[in-house]
Design a protein around this nucleic acid. Structure first.
Lengths: 136, 136
DNA sequence: TACTACCTTAGAACAATTCTATTATAATAT
DNA sequence: ATATTATAATAGAATTGTTCTAAGGTAGTA
């Protein structure tokens, strides 16, 4: 909490109670919540919190590079407070997303014609599988 | 055209003019069109074609494994008639998507705890970059 | 040629997200 | 402390991408 306040103070970022709540919700959260999950997870404690505020805050944080958008689930966007480059695996049954902290950059050499056509900024691997719980 | 007809005849798949048009539109198309782009690309020739039919046909083809859903663009789904496993790179400016036919599976060994938790079915790499045209 | 299961259609419905206009408030300067 | 101001929060409308619904149409087959 103190850490969060310290991190956002005096950087053209107003620390409102709503933002603080969202930041606290995301801090160390490795569940990759959606906007709606953030909203639902907070609305009991902050009954007047609006979805718009969640989206606004998410957008601000994303634009500042404080959180990452996870696109592995085609149905909705998930968010990840861990901005260290890493990969994801999604359970095709329950849609749970887990992190994979492994850097494969040196292993995945791109063909020359791609390197010539694109200046490559990064990569992200989506793995697809079924988690133990869903296999029974 | 003959090839397409031959491929879908007698497999519980009715070859309607609309479906034939969509199949023809997709055949060999490596532009990764969205549902709307398929619709827009055909509606001059098929003025009564409805968006629903495009979505229905896409869904049927996807379920039959004839086309693949490409999720690299968080804003909309793209479709790829090439179902050979391959990867994609998206230009972060113009959102154009290009194919990368390279198999990195043997290079990307997953950490043991992931392999224990998930039975892994596949992977897909998203590369991010800027294409030559967008760099000027 | 007639049947029937499947398909097409327009439009409504829906879900995720963004926008708008208004009110509120955190940060800052006084 | 207080006033100021730029920024944020809110509800709800709007937008976008996609799916559903109910009615009529048609490809495949018998």
């Amino acid at each position: 909490m103190e850490k969060i306040i310290h991190r956002y103070k005096g950087k053209g970022f107003k620390l409102t109670p709503q933002r603080l709540a969202i930041l606290k919700f995301l801090e160390g959260n490795n569940e990759h919540p959606t906007a709606d999950e953030i909203y639902t997870g907070l609305k009991n404690d902050y009954p007047t919190l609006s979805v718009a505020t969640v989206y606004n805050t998410i957008e601000t944080l994303r634009d500042r590079g404080e959180i990452a958008e996870v696109t592995i689930d085609p149905e909705r966007k998930h968010f990840d407070p861990n901005t260290t480059p890493h990969h994801h695996i999604i359970c095709m049954e329950c849609k749970r997303i887990a992190d994979i902290f492994e850097d494969y950059t040196s292993e995945i050499a791109l063909p020359q014609e791609v390197v010539e056509e694109f200046s490559v900024a990064g990569n992200h691997i989506d793995f697809y599988g079924v988690c133990r719980e869903c296999r029974g």
